[in-house]
Design a protein around this nucleic acid. Structure first.
Length: 287
DNA sequence: CATTACCTGCAA
DNA sequence: TTGCAGGTAATG
């Protein structure tokens, strides 16, 4: 039963993608992509068509690595960008010269220093786009605010929440509401804020809203510091796992004691997602 | 708002 | 052998 906790497949959310961005930045910024050497699962290339993608990615300079929500944005010359979403099991890694792609390596590129950029993805849900400036702008517009940026103040967050009528859990997973949270960090943030996942957003008072705002930032900051949460699939761009799995309070801990009060953590399903919370610390009665 | 599709590995 | 895990888009 303890094993089940650790075998639950966690997925890359904002802290994991940020960790990939940072580790990728060290080896990729300033390099040139010489050519795409492998497209083994063409559906991975969301846009443009794989043949055009390959043609456009010859001798392209990487100018910087950014992140938006759960997207890695590899900026190129001419204001283009390679945009990568890891979805469930995607990994973006820098590999040495001569490294051989395995069966799950769907895309590979050769760099001017002889190293390679691999995109590996067991579940094949991950996607890569090659976008121009206009395409990138569309992506930004489709996403809600970045939870860690100054532009999202506690006051702005309160206003956004009050406009919503639904339950906290699905709202926080909605990338148009706030961008970058997934199942792990929503559960952790709600536990930290002592809010039940089924509470209606519009029912929160100012103090509760502020608690949630700070909890989201605290949980994400802490996870970035620990270089992400790794159970099985997630690794950074250098292949290293993160440490945050050892600091989770409720996610994947059904039946185990709440670290704050000792009550057994419960698991319910909310909006088709496994949802973990402490029934004592996160009471449902206020609605 | 709920359901299904996309995929595979692994537990039951 | 079945079904679950979950990010997101597409579809009732």
């Amino acid at each position: 039963m303890l094993r089940a906790t650790f075998l639950r497949p966690p997925v890359p959310e904002l802290p994991e993608v940020e960790t990939v961005r940072r580790t990728l930045d060290r080896g990729l910024t300033g390099r040139r992509i010489i050519e795409v050497t492998r497209i083994a699962w063409p559906r991975t290339i969301a846009e443009p068509d794989p043949e055009i993608f390959r043609d456009l990615l010859r001798d392209r300079l990487v100018t910087s690595i950014d992140r938006r929500a759960k997207y890695v944005i590899i900026r190129l010359d001419h204001d283009d960008a390679l945009v990568v979403h890891l979805r469930m099991t995607g990994r973006l890694t820098l590999e040495q010269d001569g490294a051989e792609p395995d069966t799950h390596t769907h895309v590979a590129m050769r760099l001017d220093d002889g190293r390679q950029l691999f995109f590996r993805d067991t579940r094949k849900f991950g996607r890569i786009w090659l976008l121009d400036a206009a395409g990138l702008e569309v992506l930004h517009q489709q996403l809600g605010p970045e939870p860690l940026e100054d532009a999202l103040t506690a006051e702005a967050f309160r206003t956004l929440l009050q406009r919503r009528t639904g339950r906290l859990k699905p709202i926080l997973l909605d990338q148009k509401f706030i961008a970058g949270l997934g199942n792990i960090y929503v559960d952790e943030a709600l536990w930290t804020a002592r809010l039940h996942p089924l509470r209606r957003a519009s029912s929160l008072d100012d103090d509760e809203s502020d608690r949630l705002y700070h909890a989201i930032r605290q949980v994400l900051d802490g996870a970035i510091t620990r270089r992400g949460t790794s159970f099985s699939d997630y690794r950074d761009a250098l292949g290293e796992p993160g440490d945050n799995q050892n600091f989770l309070n409720v996610y994947g801990r059904a039946g185990q004691p709440c670290p704050r009060c000792g009550t057994a953590v419960e698991r319910i399903v909310v909006g088709q997602r496994g949802t973990h919370f402490c029934p004592h610390c996160q009471p449902s009665d206020v609605d």
